[in-house]
Computed example of a mutant assay.
Amino acid sequence: MMNETRDPPLSLSEFSFERRFDERGAGEWMQANWRQSFVFCGLYVMLVFGGRHFMRERPKLNLRKPLILWSLSLAVFSIVGAVRTGGYMSHMLSTSGFRASICNESFYSGPVSKFWAYAFVLSKAPELGDTAFIVLRKQRLIFLHWYHHVTVLMYSWYSYKDRVAGGGWFMTMNYCVHALMYSYYAVRAAGYRVPRPLAALITAAQIAQMAMGLTVAALVWRWMSDDTGTSGSDCRSHLENVVWGTLMYLSYLLLFMHFFYQAYVKGGKGGGVGNGAERKAVKVE
């Protein structure tokens, strides 16, 4: 009987740039440079609040075309990332089960996912540019927006260097939510009116993401100290990461729930993502 060579499933079929990606070198770079995230965040905060002071007595800028291009580029990046990581996550769930999808470290080194995991954490630095549009267009800057940008950048880089359990879920969920959110922002920036329930749906998806993030963090904490884990699915993390991740996701959950209540339950016509301040809702990983 002749041996048959089976093609890999579609979710594991790699493009050439994904195949050539050196995840070992990426990990070494992050180990050596993850503290640079503190520098980026410090500069970000100074530029944001310094920029607000600078714009106080100056007319707001329109920036509609740059905003469309910015939102559209991040929407395309997030959609592709969601498809690639979502496909790999589906493969993990169908072949290895739920626990392995959380605990197995292959998301950082597996086909397809290794490139998009690194692209995810690096993307948190340029995403800081979101706030420039708020500052230069003189829109209201809420605490949730800049707090999210600072904490998600630091936590993402801090977690990637150790390749902790749960990262695959965090990244996949974030890609999916960002695909919806940046697509919405691009449509709004182009001047099209979007039904208000859609804005509420996006915020509800963000809330669900935070709840699932807390669930994953709790399972990592439970399973990382479970010495009965089978080979290939034991959770490798450390208490400090679980604590910081839990506090981060809990704070996001509370802030998003408060935002949802103010914008869609208590608020009037002026509330919500779609009130003209396209970047009042935040993106979370």
Rank of each mutant, 00 (worst) to 15 (best):
S96W: 00
S96Y: 02
H178E: 04
G81K: 12
M30P: 00
V164L: 07
K60W: 04
S106I: 07
M210G: 15
S11E: 15
G270M: 08
A211S: 12
A204T: 15
Y261M: 10
V76Q: 09
V45L: 15
G81N: 13
R84H: 06
M154K: 00
A75H: 08
W221T: 13
D130L: 09
E285L: 11
W221K: 10
P126K: 12
S101R: 03
R222Q: 06
V135R: 07
W221L: 12
G166A: 02
D22T: 03
P9C: 06
A218F: 03
T5K: 14
I102R: 01
S225Q: 04
E14L: 03
S94I: 00
E23I: 00
N174C: 07
H258K: 12
Y185E: 04
G267E: 10
I68T: 04
Y44I: 08
Y184M: 09
H148P: 05
Q262A: 14
V48S: 10
P195K: 10
V273S: 12
G87Y: 02
M1Y: 08
L43E: 02
V45K: 05
K269M: 05
R163F: 02
R196W: 05
N62C: 05
W29T: 10
K138G: 14
V194H: 04
E4H: 11
M30Q: 05
R19W: 02
L128R: 09
S37C: 13
V187Q: 08
A179V: 04
L180I: 06
R19Q: 14
Y261E: 12
F17R: 03
L12S: 01
S37K: 07
L136T: 09
G27F: 01
R222S: 00
G87I: 03
Y192A: 15
G191D: 10
K161Y: 00
M248W: 08
R58C: 05
L144Y: 07
A277I: 11
F260H: 12
A277L: 05
K114F: 01
F259C: 03
S71K: 11
L128P: 09
T131S: 15
P66Y: 03
S225K: 04
L214K: 07
M154W: 11
V194R: 09
S73N: 05
I79H: 07
L180R: 07
F77S: 05
S233Y: 01
R35N: 04
L74S: 04
